[in-house]
Design a protein around this nucleic acid. Sequence first.
DNA 1: GCCTAATGTAAAACCTGCTTTACATGGAGA
DNA 2: TCTCCATGTAAAGCAGGTTTTACATTAGGC
Lengths: 62, 62
Amino acid sequence: MKNSLKALRAERGWSQADLAGLLEVSRQTVNAIENGRYDPSLPLAFTIARVMQLRIEEIFEE
Amino acid sequence: MKNSLKALRAERGWSQADLAGLLEVSRQTVNAIENGRYDPSLPLAFTIARVMQLRIEEIFEE
DNA sequence: GCCTAATGTAAAACCTGCTTTACATGGAGA
DNA sequence: TCTCCATGTAAAGCAGGTTTTACATTAGGC
């Protein structure tokens, strides 16, 4: 799966640590997802969509 | 997370085994998700949305 | 040149998602 | 009643997601 998390985060002026704080996950988790090392769980994908104010399908694609 | 998979599947007249075939996962996986034993991975959630012709947010909620 | 902040990455440990095999139960139809 | 189909569940095992700790690199400000 692909995602545009890095760009969306940058648009908002957030560091990986900032985003990790909002998501209540570790900074390494944010980094790993941004760099495609793995996909988030479904609950985490929902949280990401919520803090980004977007739909999951607008952030991730198959 | 909650989901309405059981109802959506029933609307379509599919058995758990039918849906499992479409999703290319085991019947036990469908059963476990329907009964809330665990959430699907994000890729599987995308596949479910695709075969249901709905958005992920229309099937799952936090 | 130094300090600090941001990013990338690694290992170990743990928990969750998914598989296969296998068995039990209930309902519908011949 | 017998059989078949759909559903629920369990155990063992492998794969993937997440944490903590820890270290290296780069870029910017002073």
